[in-house]
Each structure stands twice: as structure tokens, then as C-alpha cells.
């Protein structure tokens, strides 16, 4: 018996399980030629409204579907189902973010080969979702004009983890004296080079530019699946 404490090396990633599951999902998306796009933002920034508009505009040309995370309700899924595409709610209970296992579980029984684009709405939260890879090809971070231009500086980690920023509710910009230049400057400060779109789910402004981008990205995933 030795009373001296001994140091043993471990070197294990705490989120290994999630990363393994996310990698498997990414592989499945790639093999099926599905572009997976996730959406994160603070509560109420307009993810569901933006997604509803997106699904409605894409639905005649692409096979689209959506998963939507929410702490307690199925309201968002009910709203999205109006666009007539397959939608599944993930009720997370007390968990403040989606993780890869939840996405994997929600996809059980879905044939990914029947899809072109899968959207995943995360729980409204700018902190917790940043640590969890969902296997998505693109992570969109939404910032509404009503929540202040300095959100990127307050939550740099999630903005840095995203691939694209979308400024939402642009129809309200004048009313709240939204400073677009400041918002863009702050986004670029925490994630240089990030592409930024401006949209309104209400008027449809800016949706065409953003959808063009999504379609371009889909061509890439298709090409990658073909090789």
C-alpha cells in the first residue's frame, strides 16, 4: 500500500461520444447527398419563421425536411408542418441544446436518400449549442435586428462556431434603428470572412440571395456524394 497519490495520464475528449456520432451522421449525409443545415440563435430571433419561409420556397424544387428542437413544446413543428414537408420535433426536456444522438434518434426510420436538404433548428440558446457538433454541413447563426448589434461580441464562441450569419427581421430595422454596419463589424471581429445575409421572413426580402447560396452549397454536396 502506497499512500502517495499517483498521476496517471488519460487524454480523453469529454465530448468524444458526441463527436463520434456527429462524424457518423456527417458520413451518412454525405453518402446520401443530403445537405444538412442547422440554425442557432437566441430565443425568438426568428428561426422557425425563417425556416418556414425557406421550406415554402424550396419545397417545389427540392426534397426538403426539418428537425426542430424545443425544450417543452411541439409548437414549432406544428408551424413548420404547414409547409407540407416532413417535420419532426425533438423535445429536449431540460436539455438546452441538441446533440448528435438526438439528431440520430430523430432520423430513425427516415430514408436519407429521399432527401436533398435537411434543416435542423436548434433550441433557442447562444451558449450551449456551440459545443455540440450535429454532423451538419453548415451552421447558420441568426441575429435579429431587435436584439442588439453587439450579440456577436457577447457570444463570440457560437458566432465563431458558425459558417454563415443571417440577420433576420430586417423589415423592423428602421423602427429599432438597427446599425447594420456595426452588426457586420462585430460579426467579422469574431469570425473573419463569414458570409452574412439579411432577410425578413415577413416580407421575403433577402430570401432569394440566401437561397441561392444554399443551392450552390447543395451542388457541392451532390458532387461530393458522386465521387
Amino acid at each position: 500500500m502506497n499512500a502517495e497519490p499517483r498521476l496517471v495520464e488519460v487524454r480523453k475528449n469529454v465530448l468524444k461520444q458526441n463527436d463520434v456520432t456527429a462524424r457518423a451522421l456527417r458520413g451518412r449525409f454525405r453518402d446520401a447527398g443530403v445537405l444538412a443545415v442547422s440554425l442557432v440563435s437566441s430565443p425568438g430571433s426568428g428561426k422557425t419563421a425563417f425556416l418556414e419561409k425557406t421550406l415554402t420556397l424550396l419545397y417545389s424544387r427540392y426534397r426538403v425536411a426539418a428537425l426542430v428542437g424545443d425544450l417543452a413544446t411541439e409548437n414549432d413543428a406544428a408551424r413548420l408542418a404547414r409547409s407540407q414537408v416532413p417535420v419532426k420535433q425533438i423535445v429536449t426536456g431540460t436539455v438546452c441544446h441538441l446533440d448528435a444522438a438526438m439528431v440520430q434518434h430523430a432520423l430513425e426510420g427516415w430514408d436519407l436518400n429521399t432527401l436533398d436538404i435537411l434543416f435542423i433548428e436548434n433550441v433557442g440558446n447562444l451558449v450551449c449549442p456551440s459545443s455540440y457538433d450535429l454532423g451538419e454541413d453548415l451552421r447558420l447563426v441568426l441575429l435579429s435586428v431587435t436584439e442588439g448589434e453587439d450579440k456577436p461580441l457577447k457570444y463570440p464562441t457560437i458566432f465563431n462556431s458558425a459558417d454563415v450569419a443571417v440577420i433576420t427581421k430586417i423589415d423592423l430595422a428602421a423602427a429599432v434603428e438597427f446599425d447594420e454596419a456595426a452588426a457586420k463589424r462585430n460579426i467579422q471581429a469574431v469570425r473573419p470572412g463569414m458570409e452574412v445575409f439579411k432577410t425578413s421572413a415577413k416580407t421575403g426580402e433577402g430570401m432569394a440571395e440566401y437561397l441561392e447560396f444554399i443551392e450552390r452549397r447543395r451542388v457541392h454536396s451532390r458532387a461530393a456524394a458522386a465521387v
Binding site: 500500500m1 502517495e4 497519490p5 499517483r6 496517471v8 487524454r11 480523453k12 469529454v14
Partner: peptide, 10 residues
């Protein structure tokens, strides 16, 4: 986010 080592007592 990595556990690097443990100090243990046998």
C-alpha cells in the same frame, strides 16, 4: 475539453 490525467490513490 479534455480529461488529461487523474491523481489516484491505490
Amino acid at each position: 475539453l479534455e480529461v488529461v490525467a487523474l491523481e489516484i490513490k491505490e
